[in-house]
Amino acid sequence: MGDISTAAAGSPPILSVNNIEVVYDNVFLAVKGVSLDVAEGGVVALLGANGAGKSTTLKAISGLLKPERGAVTRGDIAFRGESLLGLDPPDRVRLGLVHVLEGRRVFEHLTPRENLIAATSMHRDRRGVKDLIDRTFTWFPRLAERAKAKAGYLSGGEQQMLAIGRALMTEPKLLMLDEPSLGLSPLLVDEIFDILRKVNAEAGVAVLLVEQNAAAALDFVDQAYLVDNGRVVMGGAAATVKANPDVQAAYLGGGHQVDYAAVKHYRQRRRWLS
């Protein structure tokens, strides 16, 4: 793990997802009993093919299922010991949980600074907001360099950094990221993960990410869960998951980003289902 603290492994979980099921339109069972923990200050990945239930799990945690006609129909989700299921998404943010959705979704007509300010409605201390902006620009120097440009003119990597930086303006205890490496070059992926290491180390922010780039994710996190067909089929230390021969064959692809079309047709015996 290198820079990421390993002390978190023995800490009480900041997030506990206990045997949840998620149903869409009262018909389609998308998540079929997922359980996972994220330790205080921990860094955890959810891995798996498209459609496995990873993004749905994040939306169940952040409370963003309702607009998609989804609902948690079984189990519980506890954050810092408090059940989240009765809380709306803004209340979950106020507790210290923030979700960066796939696709960046920055305010393209605003500058990076204005994007950051837009996330501070919960902060009444103007001096405190300035300090948060300064801290974010320190973590993301590319954004400081482009502070006066319209966000729509930023590169894909810079927009991803802005989406993450905007989420960090809420001062979260847990940062959830959905596909932060999507569409980015390997160098930009490395840069973003290096920044997340710094955020984790300096601010103690726990990280839960969904990622199809399994090789990059397993080099970044300290714990990982493999989701298959709506279920967690493997979980443990990142090194242990990475060493599993079936994970190597199906998800690591010799160290390159996974070809999930090939994974879909993977027919070898999978030890995690044995």
Rank of each mutant, 00 (worst) to 15 (best):
L132M: 11
L132T: 05
L132W: 01
L132Q: 12
D134H: 08
D134R: 11
R135P: 03
T136N: 13
T136F: 02
T136S: 15
T136Y: 01
T136V: 15
W139Q: 00
W139V: 00
W139P: 00
W139H: 11
P141R: 05
R142H: 14
R142M: 14
L143S: 13
L143T: 13
A144H: 15
A144C: 14
E145P: 00
E145H: 05
E145R: 08
A147F: 08
A147R: 15
A147D: 10
K148V: 09
K148L: 13
K150S: 08
K150N: 07
K150E: 11
A151W: 09
G152A: 11
G152S: 06
G152D: 05
G152E: 08
Y153G: 06
L154R: 00
L154A: 02
L154W: 03
S155R: 04
G157T: 00
G157S: 03
G157P: 01
E158A: 06
E158S: 04
M161A: 14
L162S: 07
A163S: 10
A163F: 09
I164K: 05
G165H: 00
G165C: 03
R166Q: 01
R166G: 03
A167R: 12
A167D: 14
A167P: 01
A167Y: 12
L168Q: 07
M169R: 02
T170Q: 09
T170Y: 11
T170C: 14
E171Y: 06
E171Q: 13
K173H: 08
K173E: 12
K173T: 01
K173W: 05
L174P: 02
L174T: 03
L175N: 09
M176C: 04
M176V: 05
D178N: 00
E179V: 04
E179T: 06
E179P: 02
E179G: 04
P180K: 01
P180A: 03
S181G: 04
S181L: 09
L182T: 03
L182Q: 04
L182E: 13
G183M: 07
G183N: 02
G183P: 00
G183E: 07
L184G: 04
L184H: 03
S185R: 13
L187Y: 14
L188A: 12
L188Q: 05
L188H: 02
V189W: 12
V189I: 14
D190N: 11
D190L: 09
E191S: 08
E191M: 01
E191Q: 08
I192Q: 10
I192N: 09
F193I: 05
I195S: 10
L196C: 12
L196P: 00
L196Q: 11
R197C: 10
R197P: 00
R197N: 07
V199F: 09
V199E: 06
N200A: 15
N200D: 14
N200C: 13
A201W: 04
A201C: 09
A201M: 13
E202R: 07
A203L: 15
A203M: 14
A203N: 08
G204V: 09
G204H: 10
G204D: 08
V205E: 10
A206I: 13
A206C: 14
A206D: 15
V207Y: 11
V207Q: 07
L208A: 02
L208C: 01
L209Y: 15
L209D: 11
L209F: 15
L209E: 13
V210R: 07
V210L: 13
E211R: 02
E211V: 05
Q212A: 12
Q212Y: 12
